[in-house]
Design a protein around this nucleic acid. Sequence first.
DNA 1: CATGAATGAGAGTTCATTCAT
DNA 2: GATGAATGAACTCTCATTCAT
Lengths: 194, 194, 194, 194
Amino acid sequence: MGEKSIQKRKYILETARKVFVEKGFKKVTMKDIVEACDISRGGLYLYFESTSQIFQEVLKLETQQTDDLFSGSIKADATAADILLLFLREQKKELLRKQDTLTQAIYEFYFENQLPKRDNMLKKQFDSAVRIIEKLIETGVENGEFYCEDCVGCARNMMFVLEGLKISAQTMGVTSEMVDREILYMLKNLCVDE
Amino acid sequence: MGEKSIQKRKYILETARKVFVEKGFKKVTMKDIVEACDISRGGLYLYFESTSQIFQEVLKLETQQTDDLFSGSIKADATAADILLLFLREQKKELLRKQDTLTQAIYEFYFENQLPKRDNMLKKQFDSAVRIIEKLIETGVENGEFYCEDCVGCARNMMFVLEGLKISAQTMGVTSEMVDREILYMLKNLCVDE
Amino acid sequence: MGEKSIQKRKYILETARKVFVEKGFKKVTMKDIVEACDISRGGLYLYFESTSQIFQEVLKLETQQTDDLFSGSIKADATAADILLLFLREQKKELLRKQDTLTQAIYEFYFENQLPKRDNMLKKQFDSAVRIIEKLIETGVENGEFYCEDCVGCARNMMFVLEGLKISAQTMGVTSEMVDREILYMLKNLCVDE
Amino acid sequence: MGEKSIQKRKYILETARKVFVEKGFKKVTMKDIVEACDISRGGLYLYFESTSQIFQEVLKLETQQTDDLFSGSIKADATAADILLLFLREQKKELLRKQDTLTQAIYEFYFENQLPKRDNMLKKQFDSAVRIIEKLIETGVENGEFYCEDCVGCARNMMFVLEGLKISAQTMGVTSEMVDREILYMLKNLCVDE
DNA sequence: CATGAATGAGAGTTCATTCAT
DNA sequence: GATGAATGAACTCTCATTCAT
């Protein structure tokens, strides 16, 4: 596959991403993607063979970019509390965003593809986030910023709350204030002065 | 509509429920329901006009029954901690259950039907559950069973954790131990002795 | 399936037969049959699910009718030689017929469906024809009409010659005179006076 | 066309032959051949314009080689009976061979290309074989090995039996014993002692 | 009320064929 | 000459929905 093909492949994935953002996963057909890309019916099949495959490739790209973002922000020179707040603010932005988010599509995809533990990207990301938060809390405790007796438990609790907010945002609607309220509640329990 | 019709209507809804449990919401076709009910294609249209409508009716029935269940267990004569534990155990059972649960179908349904606030059953149920838990905690605090400075915040936090566990169970898999761990974590923060 | 459906099913098979006669087996698509029958695309699928299935049903009908024909002619009151001649003449007519014959389609069908011995209709028909011819020759020998030391061998030989003529007619072309010549050659070896 | 082109042309034909052997004629697509040859889609079109054309060229090559084979074996120094037996044995080997035979593809090709008499290679080969057998029988009769009153009739009969066996092998299955039985039957009628 | 045959739109997929490089 | 990306027609199959009985 030449340079040109690689470009086109990327173009298709980027365009398909928009389609998934708009329609979720299940409703998207090869035809939808063909039309969004403005290529021929057969053309798409030169690159991908199913919406499922396309979606997984989109996710791969997405994950790479997200990882880069994470590592970028973590390098920042700041206190544990600052970084945690930054992380939570990032999550809030993500979960309130209606446009330009794959959240719903990802859920739908995992609904029908109960991937085995090893391959389950969601689980990997969840666990990885728990570890990062745990480290942050531990650092905060050492610094005297936080008070916490069960750092990993607290980290896990935070992540499940965030998951709960995320799915709630997609199904019952969640306002900016509601998210703030939950974040504040969690931080209050963590902060020393309290 | 005669007595007979009412019976048939109910029969269709009960059978359709099984189909939704099995396949989620989006993948279910009128044909699926017709075949599951073993009635004629045209027959189904006499009662319902789309899978969406059928699903909403199924949900209505479901909600009524769940409510009954709730009020039943709440009438039980027990301490606040007991009742809360009972409630959490019930939630655990529900979210670990792979078979016989509409969870996935409900999520899928709400993904594509972002119902306005007033009609959003999920939201109503969520808020109602928050209020019940809040009351329980308040009672517990009064009894000296619990210690809590922000009862409604705590209730909300609990519900979001449960939501997080629920969606996680559907997408990344959640074990009985994982649920217990989360429940325990929340209770520890609530109980006086700790 | 009601009376009407049975009629339509039969109508489809009869129409499909014409298509197979015209185009053989492999080239025929569901679309061809849909168009020949002037029914809707989906309509055909209510009755049959593939060209292969349709062809097999066409063959079933065909075989029934052919069997009836055979038994009809065999009941005739005549000498063995007469009947054998009648049979050969019938075969000749069949193999020279360009129009209205499934021969080519049958060959194509069996090319790609190497059916196991038990289900192979061609084999059954071949063996059954051998047995009939054998009986005729035996009767002829008893009557003094024929002379033959290996009746079953002779019967088999005849059938293979007929098969050879049949495939030759479809591939290299065979004239009426050529068929007569072969039939005559076989009969000469059989007849007493020779 | 340069030397290199001629080589490539030959390479394509040899590779295509394998494809036809495996899939018959009708089912073979240009894509199949392109993939088997591992050349570019466009590249194939520089040499050939359709599967039909390719198949005819494959047949040409095949015929040349077969002819060479024939003339080779005929040069052998042996009695007429020996040569005839050799020929029949060769035919038997050919018709029992499932692998590496174009038989089915050839039939399929001639089914849809009812070539005019002059161009019909099958007919030419058939007639030529008849003549060779006829000569052999005549020689055998002169030598006193065979007894036969109608040499050309007998030769033709033999060839039709062989054709019948060939198509039977492709459609209803034929065992080695069955072929032997037929060959034996024909030779018995020919041999003097019988 | 109930049936189930019929329709036709639409999705998936494959390939012959072309054409810019 | 050679490549292989691109196109678009053609085919298979499935359903929501209608309608005569």
